[in-house]
Amino acid sequence: MLPAMRCVIHRDLLLALRRRADVMTMLLFFVIVASLFPLGVGPEPNLLRTIAPGVIWVAALLASMLSLTRMFSADYADGTLEQMLLSSAPLGAIVAAKVTAHWLISGLPLVLMAPVLALQYDLPRPLLEVLTLSLLLGTPVLSLIGAIGAALTLGVRGGGVLLALLVLPLYVPVLVIGAGTVDVAAAGLGAQPYFQLLGALLVVAAAFAPWAIAVALRISIE
C-alpha cells in the first residue's frame, strides 16, 4: 500500500515538474486576486490590515479551487484512472496519495506565497506567522474536500463552474476558522483553540474524504 502511494505521489510531482506553467498560473492568480483588493477598497493601511486575513484566505481558496479540475481529468482522459481503480492497492490509499500530491503542487506554494502578500497588507510580523500556519493547516482540508467535488464532476459538462458551486459552500468552515485564527491573534487573544479546530477539521477530512472520493470516482467511471 505504501509503495503504491509513494509511486503515485512521485509520479504526480514529476508530471507537475514537467509542466511548471500550471503551478505558476495558479500562483499568479493568487497574487493578482490578492493585489486587486487594495485597488478596489483603497490604500488605507488600517482597513487593509483588517481585511488582510480574509482576503488572503479567500484568494487562496479560489486559487486552490482552480487547480481542482486538473486533479483527475488528465488521468481520466488517458485511462490511467481506470487502471488505478482496477489496481490491487486500496483505492482510498491511491486517492489519498493523489490528494497529497495535489496539495504539494498547489497548496504548499500558496502557503509559502501568503506571507509575501500579507506584507503588502502591512500585517505585523507575529500575525504573518499565524496566517501562514493557519494556511498550512487549512489548505490540505481544501484539497481533500475539493477532491470530492472534482471526482463527482469528472467528465460532466460544465464541470468547472459546477465544481465551484458544489465545493464553495463546503469550504465555509475552513474559511471561517482559518481567517478567524488571524483575527483572534490580531485581537490579542490566544489563537490556540482556532489552530486546534483547524487541526480537527484536517483530521476529520483526512479520515473521511478519501473514502468519499473513492466512492465518487467509482460512480464517475463505471
Binding site: I148, A216, I219
Partner: peptide
C-alpha cells in the same frame, strides 16, 4: 453522484452552523 454530495453536505451542516456561529 448526488447521493455522495448530499451525504457530504449532511456531515458538513453542523460544522458549518457552528463555525458560522463562532465567526
Amino acid at each position: 453522484a448526488g447521493a455522495v454530495l448530499a451525504l457530504t453536505g449532511v456531515v458538513n451542516i453542523p460544522i458549518i452552523y457552528f463555525s458560522v456561529r463562532w465567526w
